[in-house]
Amino acid sequence: MSTLHTVNKSPFERSSFISCLNHVKAGDAVLMIEDAVVAARKGSAFAEIVEKAAKDCTLYVLGPDLAARGMGEDDLIAGIKLVDYGGFVDLAAEHDRTNAWL
């Protein structure tokens, strides 16, 4: 019984990313999409918080949104998984519910 959380806002602009991480359960998945992909970049001010969250749940980032912002797999914090749109659909299907953090 696990949840897929999606976040679409940059943690530099909104608190929803941190609020999401504060409400995940062990075994949940968090998918960063749209502006939230900036939280996946290594060396960012939020990297430590993201690394800590990765211990309890699986973190994903949407590739097309990452590429659109000039980033690629090499820029990601270790452990964050890259998915495409098909992977997004698979994640939604694999989990019992989706919780969107707007």
């Binding site: 019984m1 949840t3 504060n22 409400h23 995940v24 359960k25 019992d96 519910r97 989706t98 919780n99 969107a100 953090w101 707007l102």
Partner: peptide, 18 residues
Amino acid sequence: SRAEMIDIMADQDVILSF
């Protein structure tokens, strides 16, 4: 509490966010 809120969220069939 936040811990209870996490459990409430995890107990749902559908979550609608606003």
